[in-house]
Simulated assay, not measured.
Amino acid sequence: MPSSPAASPSARSVQLTGAETLFMVMNSGSGRRNCEATQQAIRAACAEAGRQCELIVVDRGADLPGAAARAVRMARQTSGVVVAVGGDGTLNAVCQAVVGQGIPFGVLPQGTFNYFGRTHGISQDTEQAVHELLSARLEYVSLGRVNDRYFLVNASLGLYPRLLEDRELYKQRFGRSRWVALLSALVTLARAHRQLDIQLDHGGRHQRLRTPTLVVCNNPLQLQQIGIDPEPADDRDHLIALASRPVGTGALYLLLLQGMLSRMGEAENVISICFENMTTYLGNRPRWVKVAVDGEILRMRTPLQFSIEQQVLPLLIPRTAEPLEHP
C-alpha cells in the first residue's frame, strides 16, 4: 500500500489567523437548495464578515478533482482555506486534494444525509454554517483509506454499491429525499444477489466470510444511527467492518428495518469487526472490483487494503461543536 502523503511535516503545521481567503469548491448538482441562492448566501455572509472568498463551481462530479486541485494551488499561494460545498461525495473528492498539503479544510454540507458534517457539529443551514466557518477552530480528524483513496464516511463492496447506484437512478427520477432512498433500497433488496467469498486479514487473524456485502465505516454517527456500538480495545481511532451472513430477501428487509430502528447491533446475522489495518481478498481472485467510496462508485485493484489514517485532515469545525467520539 502506498505511504500516506499526509505523513509529511506540513500536514501538522497548519495555523489559523481568522483572515484567510476561502477557496470554495461547489458541486451545483449536490443538495436540495437552489445553487444560485446558495452562492448568494455564501457571498453575503463572507462580505458581512469582511472575508474574501472565491467560488469555483462545477456542474459535474467528474470535474471536482480538477477544481479541487486548482483551489489547493491558490490556497497554498495565499495561505488560504479550501472549502467543499456539497454532499459527502463532493466533500470526499475535494478532501483527496487537500490531505497532506498543510491547508485547512472546511465544509458546507448540502447533501441528503451529510454524515460527515453532522458528525462534527457543522450546521446543515448554509448561512449558519458559513458564519460558524468564519470563526471556526481547527481539529485534526482521522480518515479511512482503501488502497490509495481516502474516505470520510464509508467504503463498501458487493450489495451496498448496487444500492447506491439504484438510489442515484431513483433520485434522478423522483428527487432527492430520504423517502426516495428508502424506496430504492426496498426495490433493490427484492432482487437476487450474488454472495461474495472474501478473506479478511486483520490483527494477525484470517477470517473467511460468505456475505452479500462488506461495508467499512469511518463515521460514528452512521454507526449510532443503525445501532452499532463497538468497544475498541484502546483509545486510538479505528474502522468498523460490517458484513451479514448469507440471507434471503426477507432477512435483508429485516436487517434494513433493524438499521432504521437503530437495532442492527442486535441482529444475529450481522458481523462487526473493529480494526486499524485490514487486507480483503476476494474468491476467484478478480483483479478489479467495484467499490463505493462515500457514495462514488470506483473500480479498484484487489486485494483491497483498508486502514485508518490517524488525524491527517485539519478540519475547521464550529467553536461550540461537540463532535461525536470516533469508533
Rank of each mutant, 00 (worst) to 15 (best):
R210K: 07
L189P: 00
A136R: 03
R167Y: 03
E165I: 04
E127W: 01
V72F: 02
R210E: 04
H120W: 15
L91E: 03
G121V: 09
A68Q: 07
G66A: 15
V141K: 07
H193A: 02
L152P: 04
G102K: 12
A190H: 10
Q101F: 01
I122P: 01
L189C: 04
G66E: 14
V130E: 07
V146C: 13
V81A: 08
Q195L: 14
C95L: 13
V94R: 01
E132P: 01
G87A: 14
R167S: 05
T188V: 06
P65T: 09
V141D: 04
I198R: 01
G158D: 01
A75F: 01
H193L: 04
A192E: 14
T119I: 07
I122G: 06
G102M: 08
Q207K: 04
N92R: 13
D201S: 13
G175H: 07
L159S: 03
P109L: 13
N154K: 05
L157W: 00
F113A: 11
R145G: 09
G204T: 12
V72Y: 04
L134N: 02
Y170P: 00
R137K: 15
R178L: 15
A93C: 12
G144Y: 05
G66I: 06
E168Y: 06
T188A: 10
A97L: 05
I103F: 07
T119S: 15
V146W: 04
L143E: 10
L159C: 06
A71E: 02
V130I: 13
A69D: 12
W179Q: 12
G144T: 10
A97I: 02
R173K: 15
Q77K: 13
E139I: 09
T119W: 05
L138F: 06
A181Y: 01
L196S: 02
S177D: 09
Y170W: 15
P104L: 12
W179Y: 10
